[in-house]
Structures are given as structure tokens and as C-alpha cells.
């Protein structure tokens, strides 16, 4: 006799809530998000088991090489990638360029990366991300920067690393810094949290929340310089909840194979036998750049404030 309850429409469905935006990133955890510049590359990424792709006009390694102003991608290119795959599609806007972000939302991308890899459009302000239905991911080098982005509405944080170098050293530095900053907050008593918030230049409420949770209130991924399965596993062991891979896949000798290997190494990041196994016969990794020879002006991690 029991009939299925039909939910009433008293509470109309609500889109763009913080829970829906942050929850989307929760679903990506343990996964790999890959930079792609064509629908064909997007398909290779999906075939390899990527949880999402980042639609770009040029991968960071080429942005570095070509120089000039790096902007949001061509809408036709983003449409083509959205049509090619069934997994989520992300795209980058310049820091503070709210109109690029509005365009990306209108195109129906699933996540917007307000990214230091593109040339910043505003040297003081990031976009007000609460004003959007589409969720945002932002880069951070330390806890204060992560919390400022979250205060602006970011629903996901990633380390900055140095994109396009194939060198994981900066991503490691940022991940250790963020995790270390959180650990230090945990050791403070309530009286000390006010001064900590001032030092971090972050809202007290968020500082208090992080001290209680022992983690960010949003998902934390690694990005910047991952080129091998072992790099991805290293970032996971350091506490990343998932990995962005930029130039590392499609600037390598055998992208399809390397992409699948990085996906597997991310899931089994604590199993060296699996990582050894998937690391065999991948062909050449991207050549890479040593970050200590990069002039300050070419360090993307310095962009964003």
C-alpha cells in the first residue's frame, strides 16, 4: 500500500549554492584533471580516465615559450571540447577578468580556473566568485592566499606550482607550505587565532574553521610541474586530494600512455609497486625547466595577491 513519496515543490530547486559548487570538487577527488588544447586531446584524456579536462588554447609550456599576453580561450575551441567529451570541462579566465569569467559561464563550462598562468587583468582584485553559478578553482602558494580566494568564493583550491616547467619543486613547496600552515593553526588556542588571522591576512571566521577542521573547507588539488606518475603520487602523499597535469602529458612522447599511467598512480599513490609498473615504457617525459633559473618576472606563482 505504500506509495512513493513525491517531493513537494515548496522548496524550489536551488542552483549555484556553495554546497553544489564545493560538492562538485569533492566528486573530482582522487582524480587527474588534464590540460587539453583540442577535442582530440580531450578524447585521449577521457580515454585515459581523466576526471575532467581543462580547455586551453596553449599549454603553459607553450605560453612560456611564445610569450605575449595569454587570454581566455576561443569560445569555438571550448565548445568543440565540450562536445567531444562527457566528463566535466574546465576553462581558465585571467585573474580579475570578470567578463572572461562571465563568458565561460555562458558557454556552460563546469569549473572556471581564475589562473595565474594567463596574464593577470587586475593587479589588485580577483573576481568576486560568489556572483557566479559556475564554481571557481584558484591557485595558492600558502594558507593565507588560499583563504583569501575562498573568502572571494573559490570552491576549490590548487597549489600554484610553476606551470609549464615540468618541474614539481614549486608544487611541493606550496603543498608543504599550505599543510604546514594548517598544522600550525591547529596548535593555537582560541585567543591566538585572531592574531593568526591578521598575520595570514585572511578572514577570522575562515581561520577558525580551518583550525577546527584541520583542513581547508574546500578541496585541495596540486597543480604545476607534474610530469610523471611518481610526481602525481608524490603530491598525493603530501596531502593533495587530486592532481592537475598541464604540459606534462601532451608535451611528452606518448601522451595516451602517460595519461593513463598518471591516473593509475594517483589512485594507488601509496603503492610503489603499482607506480613502478605504470612508469615502465612511457617514452620521453617533457624536457622541463629548472625553476631556479627562471627570472622573477617569469614566475607565475608571483601572480595573484
Amino acid at each position: 500500500m505504500s506509495t512513493t513519496p513525491t517531493s513537494t515543490s515548496d522548496n524550489a530547486p536551488e542552483t549555484g549554492t556553495a554546497r553544489v559548487k564545493r560538492g562538485m570538487a569533492e566528486q573530482l577527488k582522487g582524480g587527474v584533471i588534464m590540460d587539453v588544447v583540442t577535442p582530440e586531446q580531450a578524447k585521449i584524456a577521457e580515454d585515459a580516465g581523466a576526471v575532467a579536462v581543462m580547455a586551453l588554447e596553449r599549454v603553459p609550456a607553450d605560453i612560456r615559450k611564445d610569450g605575449g599576453v595569454a587570454r581566455m580561450s576561443d569560445p569555438d575551441m571550448i565548445d568543440g571540447i565540450i562536445a567531444a567529451v562527457s566528463i566535466p570541462v574546465m576553462a581558465k579566465s585571467r585573474i580579475g577578468h570578470v567578463v572572461e569569467a562571465q563568458v565561460l559561464q555562458a558557454l556552460g563550462v563546469d569549473y572556471i580556473d581564475e589562473s595565474e598562468v594567463l596574464t593577470p587583468a587586475d593587479e589588485v582584485n580577483h573576481s568576486d566568485k560568489w556572483a557566479f553559478t559556475t564554481p571557481f578553482v584558484c591557485g595558492a602558494t600558502n594558507l593565507g592566499e588560499a583563504l583569501r580566494r575562498i573568502a572571494e568564493g573559490a570552491a576549490m583550491i590548487r597549489s600554484k606550482g610553476e606551470a609549464g616547467t615540468g618541474n614539481v619543486v614549486e608544487a611541493v613547496r606550496h603543498m608543504r607550505q599550505i599543510k604546514g600552515d594548517i598544522g600550525r593553526l591547529r596548535a593555537l588556542d582560541n585567543n591566538e587565532l585572531y592574531a593568526a588571522a591578521k598575520e595570514l591576512r585572511a578572514p577570522y571566521e575562515l581561520v577558525k574553521e580551518v583550525a577546527a577542521l584541520g583542513k581547508l573547507p574546500v578541496v585541495l588539488f596540486s597543480a604545476g610541474g607534474v610530469a610523471t606518475p611518481a610526481d602525481a603520487a608524490l603530491m598525493m602523499q603530501l596531502g593533495a586530494e587530486g592532481v592537475f597535469v598541464g604540459s606534462g602529458i601532451f608535451k611528452s612522447g606518448d601522451p595516451a600512455r602517460r595519461a593513463a599511467a598518471i591516473v593509475k598512480a594517483t589512485t594507488f599513490h601509496d603503492d610503489p609497486k603499482v607506480i613502478a609498473d605504470v612508469s615502465r615504457g612511457l617514452g620521453e617525459a617533457m624536457v622541463g625547466i629548472n625553476c631556479d633559473v627562471l627570472p622573477e618576472s617569469e614566475r607565475y606563482a608571483n601572480r595573484g595577491w
Binding site: S7, N11, A12, P13, T17, R19, V20, M24, D110, T134
Partner: peptide, 8 residues
């Protein structure tokens, strides 16, 4: 994602 929602 833009159509993702919460409902009772």
C-alpha cells in the same frame, strides 16, 4: 554543473 541543484 550550472544546472546542479539542491532540493528537498
Amino acid at each position: 554543473q550550472n544546472e546542479s541543484f539542491e532540493a528537498a
